[in-house]
Amino acid sequence: MCVQVNGARREVPAGLDVSGLLSALGVAPERVAVEVNLAVIERGQYGGFILNEGDQVEIISFVGGGRR
């Protein structure tokens, strides 16, 4: 199935959960936050939060920034 991750289409196996997606992407869950279809997913729910076809996933972290 296809999901949208940070604005890019990505083919993933059906039944994949958020934990599985992060590990497939090589992203450590400790310092990121995840949103699926505009709803924030708490870290404790990554395992078992099953993605569906067409889901919009955002994975964010902190970068340098402040006053420009």
């Binding site: 991750v5 940070n6 604005g7 890019a8 992407l25 992203v27 990121v32 955002e58 994975i59 964010i60 972290s61 902190f62 970068v63 340098g64 920034g65 402040g66 006053r67």
Partner: peptide, 11 residues
């Protein structure tokens, strides 16, 4: 105290 921005992870 430091301020940081929130941006997409480069996957």
């Amino acid at each position: 105290c430091v301020t940081v921005a929130v941006r997409r992870v480069n996957i």
